[in-house]
Every structure is written in C-alpha cells, then in structure tokens.
Computed example of a mutant assay.
Amino acid sequence: MSRPFVRMNGAGNAFIVVNALERSFRPDGDGVRAIHAQHPFDQLIAIEPSETGDAFMRVWNADGGQVETCGNALRCVGWLLMQSTGRDRVVIDTLGGPTTATRAGEHRVQVDMGPPRLAWDEVPLAEEMDTRGIELQIGPIDNPAMHTPGAVSMGNPHVVFFTDRQDDAFVRGSGSLIEHHPLFPEGVNVGFANVLAPDRIRLRVWERGAGLTQACGTGACAALVATARRGLTGRHAAVEVDGGELRIDWDEDTGHVLMTGPVEIEGTGTLQGTLAA
C-alpha cells in the first residue's frame, strides 16, 4: 500500500499534502507522528471531498493533533485546486469554516479568511475579558517581560504580544509556556509582534502543536487585527515572517481579513505501508 504526497510551503510554512478526494486518509495521532518522523512537516494536510465547497481541507499538526485551519495551507491547497481545475477562484471548507482562495499571480494566492472572531467566548477564553488586551503576563508580577496581549480567533485561537523581544530562546520559552495556559481551553497559537511602522509588522509565532515555525498565516492575520485594534497599525500591512512576507488587509467594508502570499512546491514523495492508510 502506498500514497503519494506533495511537499509544499507557504512563506516557509512546510506541509505534506495528501489527495484524499477518492480514497480516505484519516491517520490517528500516532500515525501522524510516525509520518512526521519520516517526512518532517509543520502540518499534514488532506484534501477531501466537500458537499458545499470545491474541497475540504483537514489539518494535523506535527504533534498529531487535528486543528481547525491553517492560513498558509489554504493558499497551497487553493493553488493546487486552481491548477487542477483551470479556475481562478475556489472555495475550501475547513473545521474553522469555509474560505475562498483566489489566484493573485504566478505562484501567489489570496485567501479570504472571513471576519475575525473577537468575543472572548469565540477565541475562546476561559473567562470573560476585553480581547483587545487580556489579563495575561509573562514574568514577575511587578516587572513582567510582556503583558496585556490581544486575543483573536481566525478560525483558530491566537494571542498576540506586542514586543520587540523575538529571539529564539524567548519565543520558544514564552510560547511553550502560554500554549497550554488555563486561560485557553483549546490551547493557543502565540504571536510576538514588533510593529515597525503603521503598515509593517515583524512577526514570530509559536504555533500550537507545531512549535516555532517559519510562517503562520492565521497568525499574521491575527497580528494585524490585534495591532489595528490597539491603534498600533492601520488595517493594511506587510507582515514579515521568518520565511518571507505576507500581505494582510482587514477590509473596512466587509470586515473580512484577506491574506496574500507565495506558494512553493518543493517536491513529491510516497507514504508506504501503514503510513498510507
């Protein structure tokens, strides 16, 4: 038994993409971790049939946990679907809701991520508070290293700290500490956003279940929304991530967040034996 896959990345965020349109692909947590051991990835993606869209995108993190959505993967899956159909627009269903992907260049795709979810119980948080600046800090009470981050759901939960401290040790230590904080019943992706200008953000993200990644599409969207709500940026910005740059636009009329960025195919491979089931 074998199963072909495509290895792709979006701004450095690495994926293994499996076509499950005609043959089901539902590995359990152990199976996902076994695939990751042989073919390392940030997220494992299955493209499945959908009754309401052009396809359904299922996402697993490297730790084996299934998650709601992934912004960079949506661009990659959107590109594959558009290439196979010859169309310039497709609708992709996810556990986080439907998303529209549109061709934006040779290897560029724009994804309509929909409106951000800003209520405390939509993120979700364990208790009610203002998501523009939640009651959370890292470090001593009288001298915290970071505090009062914004909280946003882009189909998956994000917390965004406003800071210029972005070195590996700090991001890994703080991110792993916050990821499973009791305030976040579903866990959380942790962003570290340094506002360089009203239209430019430098971002690093500790991704729930994956760790420090080259890019996080939903994290870039969350960072723009969080900084704009605090008046640190406008509603349109370039977001610099380790693997490249994403353009994020929070549309004033529709309230939707649009993410535009690159897509790259790195190669192909095959899952063998039980990994292909």
Rank of each mutant, 00 (worst) to 15 (best):
R89W: 02
G71Q: 04
T85N: 01
M154E: 05
A151L: 05
D93H: 12
R89A: 13
W120I: 03
G139D: 08
G97E: 01
V109G: 04
I141Y: 14
E135N: 08
P144H: 08
C76G: 04
I134H: 06
E135Q: 15
G64M: 05
T102S: 13
T69W: 00
M146P: 09
T148I: 12
Q137W: 10
M154G: 00
E135M: 13
V90R: 09
L118Q: 08
R108F: 08
A104D: 03
G64K: 08
P149H: 00
L125V: 07
T99H: 15
Q83W: 00
V91C: 07
N143D: 14
V67R: 03
R75P: 14
S153T: 02
T148R: 13
R75L: 09
D121Q: 05
A62I: 08
P140E: 12
P124L: 01
A126V: 01
L95Y: 05
H107M: 14
W79L: 11
T69E: 04
G65E: 10
D142R: 14
S84V: 10
G65K: 06
W120G: 11
G155T: 00
A151M: 01
D142Q: 13
A104F: 09
Q110W: 05
A119R: 11
H107G: 09
R117A: 03
G86M: 09
T99E: 11
G78L: 15
S84N: 10
P149D: 13
H107V: 13
P116G: 09
L125M: 05
M146E: 11
M129R: 07
A73K: 12
P157I: 06
